Structures are given as C-alpha cells and as structure tokens.
Simulated scan of single mutants.
Amino acid sequence: MTRKIVKQYKAYRDDIRDLQTRRPVPGPELEQLDPFLFLNHHGPQVYAPDNLGLPFGPHPHRGFETVTFILRGELAHSDTGGHESIIGTGGVQWMTAGSGLIHSELSPEAFKRHGGELEILQLWVNLPSRLKMTAPGYMGLQVQDIPQIPLSKGNGAISLISGSVAGVTGPIKSLTDVTLMTVQMSAGSEVTLHAPAARQVFLYTVKGRLKIDDMPAQAWHLIELDDSDDRVTISATDDATFLFGHADKINEPVVSHGPFVMNTVQEINQAILDYQAGKFDVKL
C-alpha cells in the first residue's frame, strides 16, 4: 500500500509583467492545502540581454514563511532584517516573515545586463498562531550547501532542504518540522518517499509526467494525496522534476490579505496599521 491520488489541480497561468507565472494554489478549486498556502511557478523562460529582471521590489510579509527554489537563473534578496544574498541555480532561500519583514526579490545587475534562463518556485508555508509573531529570519543556500541523495542506479537525485531522508538531514531546521525537497528523476525510474499518514503531503509536478501508485500525474499540477499510508511511490514517465514535502496540519482559521496571513480580521488590520506606521524595521 502507498498513498493514492485524490485530485489534481492545474497551475493556471497568471503572468506578472513579462514573467511567465503559473499558480496551482490558491486556485478556483483549492484555497490551501494546510499548512501550504501558495505556490508560484515562474518560468521556465529565457530573458534577453538588457531586460528588466524580476518585478518583486520592496513589499511586506507577516505571519508565515516563504521558501524560494531557484531552479535556473539567479535571485538577489534583501530585507529589513539586514539579510542580503544572491542565490544561483540550484539554491534555495528560506525566509521567516514572522512578526514582519519588508523584502525585495530582484534580478542581479549582471542577469539584467546579459539575460539568461530563469525558473523559480516560491512556496508559502503557514505558521500557527503561537509563531505568527516570531522574530523574522532568513537563510540563503547555494547549491553546494544542499545535500544531494542519489536515487538507485544513478536515475536522479533528491535535493534535501529540510527534514531527513535515508539518514541525511537537510540544512534548514524548520520551526514547524516541515520537510521539503526537490526530486529529479530519469524516465522509467521509481522512488518511494516516506510521508507519515497523519501529515499533509505537498507534491507539485515541475516538469514531466509521473505515476503515483500507477495513477498518472500530470505536469504543472498540484497533486493531492490521500492519507492511506506512510509512503508515496512515484515513477517517472518522462525525465521529471517535482517539489515534495510534508508537514503537520495547523487546523486554525486562515485570514489572508495580500502579503499578510493571520488568524483573524483584527490581526490583519493590525498588520496593515503596523506596516503603515513603519514598524517592520524599514531599512531598505
């Protein structure tokens, strides 16, 4: 027995300026997959020389965490906690907005000047009420900082960000014990991943077609699984890449307003007032 597909949610197109963007959640049929709130899939695309780069200038967040996977290209990060980095292909940045940060996610000047390939995933992970006002934090990982766990017979690899797989522990220690990884597989290969039945699985097909317990899973879809087992068996019909993780459900009210995610309308209103009053430690 392994987990089975309950439903598949297509990532619908919602471009931002000239940035090709697909989003499976929130969407017309799925508001969230507790505690996973939001996923943007930017690209894949190629930017020409002398481009404008990414459009994500200074903007605030409160009440959750963002995990950004730079599959191709580069991303320059800066925030009001004093964190700055340029993360390249294969790297990840994990930001805890907590009580409030203002950050920018832009293309480095060299990328805007020369252009190049770009593909980025950004996932929002909710925080429970007890942690929504936790101190903000940030960790940027380059590809060499991320453990690579090879699949059998050289048929791909797991890039482990948080949690443990096969005795290997990822470099991020999540506040809420979230496990996250990306997996690359060759066509015809198979992997079985551990995912405790009580936890919510997040599985998004970035590239290629998969089968889960012999049921087809389409590319550019969020795959909702049942809770019938502690394992997920995945085979690749094509050369494939997918985002995989699992976490405990929070089971609390979710009230979101743009970049703020809290438990009540009153808390959202307070976040707006705090931001307008300059209480997000504005240094940009």
Rank of each mutant, 00 (worst) to 15 (best):
M185I: 07
T192Q: 12
L180G: 01
G188P: 13
M215E: 15
V191A: 08
L175T: 07
H194C: 12
P171T: 10
V201D: 02
F202T: 00
R199Y: 14
V206G: 13
S174P: 00
L175N: 07
L203M: 14
K173R: 09
G188L: 05
L210C: 00
V201T: 07
G208P: 07
A219L: 03
A217G: 05
D177I: 00
P171V: 08
T205W: 02
T179W: 06
K173T: 03
L203Q: 14
R209Q: 10
P171S: 07
Y204M: 09
M185W: 03
P196G: 02
V183N: 06
M215K: 14
T182C: 10
T205S: 08
T182Q: 08
I212F: 02
G208F: 09
T205D: 02
D214P: 15
Q184H: 12
D177H: 00
I212N: 02
Q218N: 01
Q218K: 01
A187T: 05
K211R: 10
T182A: 09
A198Q: 12
E190D: 15
F202K: 00
D177T: 00
I172C: 01
L193T: 08
F202P: 00
K211P: 08
Q184G: 09
T182K: 10
P216H: 14
A217Y: 06
P171F: 04
A217H: 06
M215Y: 15
V178A: 07
G208S: 13
A195G: 11
R199M: 13
K207R: 15
P196A: 02
T192K: 14
K207M: 14
T182V: 06
L175R: 09
G208A: 14
M185R: 04
R209H: 08
L180E: 01
M181R: 04
P216W: 11
L175S: 09
T182D: 09
V183A: 04
S186L: 13
R199P: 11
L180H: 02
F202A: 00
L175Y: 04
L180C: 01
P196V: 05
S186W: 12
T179D: 06
T179A: 12
A217E: 05
A195V: 14
